[in-house]
Design a protein around this nucleic acid. Structure first.
Length: 297
DNA sequence: AATTCGAGCAACCGCCCCCTA
DNA sequence: TTAGGGGGCGGTTGCTCGAAT
């Protein structure tokens, strides 16, 4: 029990960079940079369709090349943002559920304004959406609850839910649950080779758009040399299972575009003891993702 | 019905980090 | 070693739309 939240986040970050850098190495460098006028402002449905069609058919590879190849008068960053925040498959839109809201608040208490990291724990939500939701709604909610908390404290009345004290407790508890053991990818693993600087990994990982393959009962990450690196072969997809000893076995996967999978993966066994928490409970798909609040907090 | 105001949110900006040549 | 380029990400802006007056 030695891994702090930063390490979890850094591991997630490394996974993402691993995936991204692989793509960068695959032909982005040295390409001609087209000079074209860049349109700004809202995206039209036609532009959306062009971008979506292009990425689904070719992948995005190097973002600066996407607008050129897709025939869009936009810059690469704009395309990337549009894809990530709006067009990417699996985006969940609409109002945050109570569970999402609660989780976002808990995560914010721990991570602060690390929107991308918070968003990783809210499947289907983007960092921008989380950020907007926080700025327009949750921030006020927390502030309000803090105010009511101080009022209640003056009345010697303990607050039940989102008081400042409760918020702080949640932060402490969340830090506790992130104190996981780590696992080591095998030395021979090409995945490990590709990420040799990462000495230890959390048992719980949230990965978003890890380019890899999956087949029956398997999730894998592609290593830089194209070989399979880390594989979870003992997990079933879309499963939800609490082992007899209270540990969690859970895996959920959803395939989207060709060549890419939206994967949320968890080391299946010996996550944590039942004395601390039951990490997650999954629904059939991502929409069912939720923290088990009863056991966690 | 017209105007004002505020909430919500899409998108841009700019900084930072990482990688490659 | 370093400069340049690409991508990630948090902060901010500004547009849209609905509610209130």
């Amino acid at each position: 029990m030695s891994l702090k939240s930063e390490h979890v986040c850094s591991a997630i970050s490394e996974l993402r960079k691993f995936s991204e850098n692989r793509k960068i190495r695959m032909g982005c460098r040295g390409s001609e940079k087209a000079k074209m006028k860049c349109k700004k402002g809202l995206w039209s449905p036609e532009e959306d369709q062009r971008l979506k069609d292009y990425i689904l058919n070719h992948g995005y590879g190097c973002w600066s090349e996407v607008p050129v190849k897709a025939g869009l008068e936009r810059n690469g960053k704009s395309c990337r943002l549009r894809w990530i925040n709006y067009l990417r498959p699996g985006i969940k839109r609409g109002k945050f559920s109570h569970e999402e809201e609660d989780l976002a608040m808990k995560l914010h208490a721990v991570l602060g304004n690390k929107w991308s990291q918070i968003a990783m724990h809210l499947p289907g939500r983007t960092d921008n959406e989380v950020k907007n939701y926080w700025n327009t709604y949750l921030k006020k909610k927390v502030k309000k609850s803090e105010e009511s908390d101080s009022a209640k404290l003056s009345d010697h009345n303990p607050s039940p839910d989102l008081s400042a004290e409760n918020y702080k407790n949640k932060q402490e508890n969340f830090n506790k649950i992130l104190l996981f053991d780590t696992f080591e990818p095998s030395e021979s693993s090409s995945y490990n080779h590709g990420l040799s600087q990462q000495k230890s990994w959390p048992k719980v990982m949230f990965a978003d758009w890890i380019f890899g393959e999956n087949s029956d009962g398997q999730v894998s990450l592609e290593s830089p040399d194209g070989g399979k690196g880390l594989t979870w072969d003992s997990c079933s997809f879309d499963s939800r299972e609490t082992l007899s000893n209270g540990d969690l076995r859970a895996m959920s996967n959803q395939e989207f575009a060709e060549g890419g999978s939206y994967v949320s993966c968890f080391e299946p066994v010996d996550l944590v003891g039942s004395d601390s928490f039951d990490l997650l409970s999954f629904g059939g798909n991502f929409g069912g993702f939720e923290m088990n609040q009863d056991l966690m907090f």
